[in-house]
Simulated scan of single mutants.
Amino acid sequence: MTRTDPMTCSDPMTVLLEWQAAAREAGDPQAGLMALSTVSPAGEPSLRTVSVKLLESRRIGFVTDSRSPKARDIAACPRVTVMFTWMSLRRQVTVRGDAARMSAEEAGREFRRRSRPAQLGAWASHQSSPILDRGVLDSALAAAARRWPEGTPVPVPPHWAGYVITPTEIEFLRAGRPDRLHDRSRHRPAGDAWVQHVLGS
């Protein structure tokens, strides 16, 4: 059970961390995931689910292929939105903010935390690029395994990248009321503090 309440807490990131911890404790399959929305240079919105690799005071991070559509979108327009949805708890958090590249050192640490198969997979795939069939991926993965046999460290690929989102707005939704007048609040940074507004449901 979480100890803090977004309707009264002065630091929304504390609530976000506690809500995610509660989702993990409840075994929610979405606990470590978030939906990421970006906009292309042509103004077309895109949405996909990514793993949360960093969640701390005013920093939310994920990793990806720097050649991917999401990376190209962020390069053109760094304004993004992410959404955490934990159905088991009937809670949702929407974060809007600015995305920027992680340092190479920090992104490299995230790569080295991956399992060996996932490290090899990062070398095998050009994310979201069209391929002839599944066999192309399987062949590329086998080639990567031969290049770095078991016991050999897998280096960080040159196209590996991480991104950090600095929140400019955090909105909490706590559902479950039979009258559907759910608890909602919006928080925006103001210097070292946050300005909070309770919202109509």
Rank of each mutant, 00 (worst) to 15 (best):
G176I: 14
A104K: 00
L36C: 05
R188W: 05
P41N: 03
I131T: 06
A124W: 09
F172S: 08
A104E: 13
T166I: 12
G162M: 04
E44K: 14
C77I: 03
P41V: 02
T168N: 06
I74G: 08
L137C: 04
Y163S: 01
T85L: 14
P41E: 09
P117I: 01
H197G: 02
E105V: 13
A142F: 02
P12M: 03
S51W: 10
G108L: 13
R79Q: 15
S51N: 14
E171M: 14
R91F: 00
E105K: 03
R67S: 07
S68H: 06
E105L: 03
L199M: 08
K70G: 06
R48L: 15
E18K: 05
W194H: 09
F111A: 00
A99V: 06
L33F: 01
H182W: 10
W194P: 11
V50W: 13
D28P: 00
V164M: 01
G97L: 01
R59Q: 15
T4F: 10
A71C: 05
G27C: 02
S139T: 07
I60Y: 02
L199C: 04
V52Y: 01
Q30W: 09
R113W: 07
L181W: 07
C9Q: 13
T38A: 05
E110H: 13
A140P: 00
S46L: 09
R134M: 10
I131F: 04
Q127P: 00
S51P: 02
G200P: 00
T14E: 15
P6S: 11
P45E: 07
T8P: 09
S129I: 11
S88M: 14
R180H: 11
A21I: 00
E18I: 08
G191W: 04
T64D: 08
G121T: 05
P45T: 04
T14S: 10
L16V: 01
V156S: 01
R59P: 12
A26D: 02
V93E: 00
R58E: 15
I60M: 11
R177M: 10
R188A: 06
A118Y: 06
Y163F: 15
R96C: 11
V95R: 06
E171K: 09
S139G: 15
I74N: 08
P153H: 14
A122M: 03
I131Y: 03
M13Q: 06
